[in-house]
Amino acid sequence: MKRLLFVDDEPNLLAGLRRMLRSERNEWEMEFAEGGEEALSKLQSHRADVVISDMRMPRMDGAEFLNEVQQRQPATARICLSGFSDGGLIMRGLGSIHQYLNKPCESGHLIQTVRNILQAAAGLPAELHERLCALKCLPVAQLTLQHLKEVLAQDAPCLQEVGQLANLDLGLSCRLLQLVHSGFFGTPRHVESVEDACRLLGIAKLRKLVELPDVFSSQELDQQWLARLGRAADRLSRRAFSLAKENGLSPRECDYARLAGILYGLPELACAACGWPEVVNESGLFLIRLWGLPNQVVDPELAPAAQVALALDEGEYDASATR
């Protein structure tokens, strides 16, 4: 049985969750802790698959607690369930929080989110699952990161330039989509593109984000390969978009096709980032669910969009991005 650990300083909230999740009691084993310290001591005796924590708590706050969990049990999925929080607190937790849910959160949404993550994890080798959970961020090409910092250091940076830069890097694109698509900085937003994500975050936040250690980082990976992967994702997303348009799909579906194109290379990058020798396709789906990336690209109801993207000439993709 999968174990869930809920942490909040408000006992009534924990009790409410317990009652509300009663229907799931046969599937999940649920624990509740009234603070970070209590939760950590509970984790010592039993490991948890998913930790769901409040942000604003007395003594140990959510960011501190989740950072600690990441250190001790990297294989846990770490979800935040909180009301408004100030930016600083969230920024500190960006390296360890996988997904951010805003209070009040519909029970159905919470259950679905956890279920999706657990489902996607089931198809992964345990070791890879643990490495993916431990991942603080996806690698970003050194040159791109440097360039991004330079652009943001200008007096009046052009958001379009930032968007174009991000478009050419898969790691950067994924992180930006994650930040906007999950509720880190307000209500979760559906975005059509990486440029949109940049615009929604705004220059001030982007400037803060590039200075943080665990938000965007470059790794010891083949830089040329990273750059190729980024270019391929860009090309693929354009291709998917225009194909979707040609096939007369709705504007929304066209957007999903574009996003599917971007995320197509995600398994490759994810496996490389955690040093896994071969590409496991399921790792992409897992990260999408864990990070709360646009889920629609793998939503069976939106199959046409996904299919358009997946039906692309794979030969072209492989040729452009091989390790």
Binding site: D8, E10, N12, L13, A15, G16, L17, R19, M20, D54, L81, G83, F84, N102, K103, P104, C105, E106, S107
Partner: peptide, 11 residues
Amino acid sequence: INTPIQYIGDN
């Protein structure tokens, strides 16, 4: 307010 709303709704 969001915290009590959460548990009132849950309950």
